[in-house]
Design a protein around this nucleic acid. Structure first.
Length: 356
DNA sequence: CATTCGTGGGT
DNA sequence: TACCCAAGAAT
């Protein structure tokens, strides 16, 4: 892809595009999202949650998070496990780790106040170009445009250009070039709302688009809606064995220690195959308590497909087993994060044993 | 520059 | 079903 912004988009055309987008936004834009406002702390939390995560998934987590940690001061007092607990089920847990790290950095390097300068914001862990721009612009501290999935799709269709990952600089340039001088915050929201509500990845509503007359892909034909397919991900198949250990209402959980998957969360003991599990239960003297009924279920990630074989182990004589005394928890009193698969297992366990 | 990070929804 | 992919960033 190659184009010359200034020749393709003279000042007059640029002004028209800006006006049409903002006029559309004033009527159709999403102004009721719970993180709308000027509080840079809340904007930060929402923007991190929204990375690769749909709005509908984020809203309940955002409300829980802000209810528990309404400002930086309250977050400063939290532990990493506290943040991970709130994050449980939302995914991409490195984001929660980076939020915790950032809270420490802000105390130590920014005198306890969230930075308002774009480059300072960009320097924080877990904040890249798009997130830094959104935080800066939404909070009223600058005029920086974004290039998230919505804007990429919208602008590449607008140009009717195939854009691969090595040519994103041109789209960044165009995104910033079209950005409103007077209402940058509304404008980047309008970018995303158009991308999400009108210029959808399938069945775009081109007749509703405020800039369809300037769009190179209009009138709509499936063939001129260019979308560069993302890398085809190879899904591995993993069969893991997991043992749920219950000692009279206390469950044995340990910190997960695979590579970086579910890093910082806790789980029932997991093994890469059945024989490893059997060896472990034998050496820890719990094999005698294993139930005969087992079940399995699959848990799909974007790039890995898991099948879990679940074994139940109900300890009756705690003294005889050689398991650490420190790893037993009541389900109602867990103060750390667990993966979604563990949550599903506990729910299934409760239904089997009519447990609460 | 290609992978690796979760989970849920859409087609 | 199987596959894509979402307000991306780090490595």
């Amino acid at each position: 892809m190659s184009f010359e912004i200034k020749s393709s988009y003279p000042s007059k055309k640029k002004s028209l595009i800006r006006k049409n987008i903002l006029d559309w936004y004033d009527i159709n834009g999403r102004s009721d999202l719970p993180w709308k406002g000027q509080d840079i702390y809340k904007i930060w939390i929402s923007e991190v949650m929204l990375q690769q995560t749909q709005v509908q998934s984020v809203i309940p987590y955002y409300k829980m998070f802000i209810d528990r940690y309404p400002n930086l001061e309250s977050l400063f007092k939290a532990s990493l496990n506290d943040v991970m607990k709130i994050w449980s089920g939302l995914g991409f847990y490195r984001r929660a780790e980076n939020i915790y790290k950032t809270s420490i950095i802000i105390q130590e390097e920014f005198d306890g106040e969230f930075p308002k300068n774009y480059n300072d914001i960009l320097s924080l862990p877990g904040i890249g170009r798009t997130t830094a721009s959104a935080i800066t612009t939404f909070s009223g501290n600058g005029r920086y445009s974004i290039l998230d999935g919505n804007v990429k799709r919208f602008l590449s269709r607008f140009l009717s250009a195939e854009v691969d990952n090595s040519e994103l600089n041109s789209l960044w340039e165009l995104s910033q070039y079209l950005l409103s001088d007077t209402r940058p915050s509304d404008f980047i929201q309008a970018y995303m709302d158009i991308g999400s509500l009108v210029c959808k990845k399938s069945k775009p509503l081109c007749y509703e688009c405020p800039v369809n007359k300037q769009c190179n892909s209009y009138p709509y034909q499936p063939s001129n809606i260019s979308s560069k397919p993302r890398k085809i991900k190879i899904k591995e198949k993993n069969i893991w064995s997991l043992v749920v250990i219950n000692n009279k209402g206390q469950f044995y959980l340990e910190k997960i220690s695979y590579d970086n998957l579910w890093k910082g969360l806790y789980s029932s003991p997991v093994f890469h195959n059945q024989s490893d599990l059997m060896g472990w239960t034998e050496s820890h003297k719990i094999k005698a308590y294993m139930e005969s009924n087992t079940w399995k279920f699959t848990h799909k990630l974007s790039h890995i497909k898991f099948t879990f074989n679940i074994i139940l182990c109900n300890i009756k004589y705690h003294k005889k087993v050689s398991l650490s005394d420190d790893n037993w928890y009541n389900l109602s009193d867990i103060d750390f994060g667990i993966p979604k698969y563990q949550d599903k297992i506990f729910n299934q366990y409760k239904s089997i044993y009519d447990y609460n």
